[in-house]
């Protein structure tokens, strides 16, 4: 499974991301583009871990960053609008 996240969603969580803490975030399922809320650990350098799914990061203009991250999904959460 591959996912996408938009960079600005991670604003304010940079330290947690860098330190490997679990964060609550909305990801896009790369197959269906459905927005899925998850509790997850983001891994900025995929070489650091064999676990997790590929995570593509896009900026607010829609451009995808060259090197994907990885994401380890701990738990799926209820939709933010339910």
């Amino acid at each position: 499974m591959e996912w996408e996240v938009s960079r600005e969603i991670l604003y304010g969580m940079e330290e947690d991301v860098a330190s490997g803490k679990e964060i609550e975030v909305n990801l896009y399922n790369k197959e269906t583009y459905e927005v899925v809320s998850v509790r997850a650990i983001m891994i900025e350098s995929p070489d650091q871990s064999t676990e997790g799914d590929i995570l593509w990061v896009r900026d607010f203009n829609g451009r995808v960053e060259e090197k994907p991250w990885k994401v380890k999904i701990i738990e799926r959460l209820a939709s933010p609008w339910e």
């Binding site: 269906t32 583009y33 927005v35 203009n61 829609g62 451009r63």
Partner: peptide, 10 residues
């Protein structure tokens, strides 16, 4: 559709 690559969704 996913109209253009990089759009915010479908």
């Amino acid at each position: 559709p996913m109209v253009h690559d990089g759009d915010g969704g479908r």
